[in-house]
């Protein structure tokens, strides 16, 4: 396909002009918005649909090391079994009622609570967070960068069953329910 350098330069010039026009339209329309998107704030926090303080994986890892927090995993049990934060309890929001007997006393105590799930599918974690709030559990925090953020830290992950749950029907329990060490997470770099 024949072409000349001059034409290509002009094409890039035109592109730059259109880009500038787009930027003006983007920032202009944002400024006119009822709630403009701040340029630097974390969109995951702004979009969170539950009124709960957030925590990032780095701080959560410090809490994990201090050993004074309990972690609640909001994802489905099958997903939990494939890998979760070490010692976390599996609590999909719909199961909260049946898990309350075990977890209620822990949640009522002084121990900090951190709820998490996939950051890229926050609805499940939001449901659990709302359930906790309506059950009167205050002081819980929401892991905003989620299990992905945890894995990226290269922090401890386990796989296997939650020892405090009887394996649901159709799921074969792992050896004596003990959690085994997971392979190094793929995402950690």
């Amino acid at each position: 396909m024949p072409h000349d350098g001059n034409g290509l330069r002009r094409a890039i010039g035109e592109g730059a002009l259109l880009l500038a026009l787009s930027a003006v339209a983007a920032f202009g329309s944002n400024a006119l918005r009822k709630e403009p998107l701040p340029l630097l704030a974390d969109a995951r926090v702004l979009a969170l649909e539950v009124d709960m303080p957030v925590i990032y994986a780095r701080e959560a890892a410090a809490a994990f090391d201090a050993g004074d927090h309990i972690f609640l995993d909001a994802r489905e049990y099958e997903t939990y079994r494939m890998g979760h934060i070490g010692g976390a309890f599996s609590v999909p929001a719909e199961d909260f009622g049946s898990r309350y007997e075990t977890l209620g006393p822990l949640l009522a105590g002084e121990t900090g609570v951190i709820v998490y799930g996939w950051a890229s599918a926050p609805a499940a974690t939001e449901r659990l967070a709302k359930t906790l709030l309506s059950a009167g559990v205050t002081g819980a925090r929401f892991l905003i960068d989620g299990y992905e953020g945890w894995l990226r830290l290269g922090a401890t992950a386990e796989k296997g069953d939650d020892p405090t749950i009887e394996a649901p029907e159709g799921i074969e329990a792992t050896d004596d329910g003990a959690a085994e060490e997971a392979a190094p997470p793929e995402e950690a770099s």
């Binding site: 034409g7 002009r10 094409a11 890039i12 010039g13 035109e14 592109g15 730059a16 259109l18 880009l19």
Partner: peptide
């Protein structure tokens, strides 16, 4: 309009 520039973008 500005087809080549738009295609570059």
């Amino acid at each position: 309009v500005a087809s080549r520039g738009a295609a570059v973008l």
